[in-house]
Computed example of a mutant assay.
Amino acid sequence: MSEILRVENLKKSYDGFLAVNDVSFAVAKGELKALIGPNGAGKSTCFNMLMGQLRPTAGEVYLDGERITGKRPREIWRRGVGRTFQITGTYQSMSVIENVQMALMSHHKRIFSIAPRAWKLYRDEAMGFLDTVSMADQADRPCSVLAYGDLKRLELAIALCHRPRLLLMDEPTAGMAPSARIELMQLVADIVRDQGVSVLFTEHDMDVVFAHAHHIMVLNRGELIADGSATEVRNNPQVQEVYLGGGTLFKEDANA
């Protein structure tokens, strides 16, 4: 498979402390790839450099062969990179569908078209995205009454409105009940399969990671220590040492 994202020798230093140190990797088109590691490993710092929230100290980032290093978040977004965050950010005073309509207005460059009739804009298109995340039946509910798992689904619908080629998901299941985590990541896996969107996600729930990721990368103290299949990462002695101080990281399943 061809690459959608390539990262070369990425570094981020704060007064001599290397939060991310010489990290290189690639994400293929149509791939669901996980970036895991202990708290403080550098995962969010890495994500923030990919999306332009932080400027790298050194290194390069390429999207589909185009250099995007140091570009502003909106420029990167316009080039086809979407993102979801650990903490959801929706307009609580608006309904579910109005949140999606706002995202579509931005996508269609009509964000300044706020007017008494703005609520009619892109309603059918918004319903299509809500259907994708199984939220169509809650379209007219206010966001303020949604369960946290439904807010995560809504955030995914909003991210999809720009039809990203690459979606960065920072701990997409954080704060969710176990069953809701499984449902959300299965939904993401279905979107990757059906729409060809590439997804790079960070996650602390190892059951979610090993059940859905095509490949897994492991960061520790800012350095990439593993990049491979679930079986390769599970059996990597350095990864086992980081997570458990030795021993077997996860029980092998029948399909591994």
Rank of each mutant, 00 (worst) to 15 (best):
I68N: 07
S134F: 13
V239K: 05
C143I: 00
A230K: 00
A177P: 07
A136P: 02
R123H: 11
G149A: 07
A136H: 11
A26V: 15
H214L: 01
K152P: 14
N21T: 12
A211S: 15
M169P: 14
G70T: 08
L168S: 06
M169R: 00
A211D: 14
T173W: 08
L224V: 06
E31I: 02
E60G: 06
P178I: 05
S179T: 13
S198I: 05
A226G: 09
R221A: 15
I87C: 06
G149V: 01
G30I: 01
D207S: 13
E3H: 10
I68V: 09
T88G: 09
F250K: 12
M176Y: 06
Y91I: 15
G30Q: 01
Q86C: 07
V197C: 04
T84C: 06
G16R: 05
I68D: 04
H214C: 01
E75L: 12
G16H: 04
P142I: 08
Y91R: 09
E171C: 06
M135G: 09
M1C: 03
G30C: 01
A115E: 00
F112D: 03
A213R: 07
K152H: 09
G149H: 12
V100L: 01
F85R: 04
G82L: 00
V7R: 06
R221P: 02
L121D: 04
V199Y: 00
S113P: 07
A19M: 09
A174Q: 09
S24Y: 02
R79S: 14
I68W: 11
R193Y: 09
G128F: 07
A226D: 10
M169I: 08
V199L: 04
S24D: 03
L200I: 15
L160D: 01
C46N: 13
L121K: 12
A159L: 02
I158F: 05
L156M: 03
A157M: 06
L63K: 04
A26T: 15
L249S: 08
A19S: 11
E155H: 06
H214I: 02
S13R: 11
L18V: 10
F250Y: 11
G246Y: 00
K71G: 05
M102H: 12
L151Y: 11
S93D: 06
T69C: 02
Q92I: 14
M169L: 15
V23F: 01
I111N: 08
G42C: 02
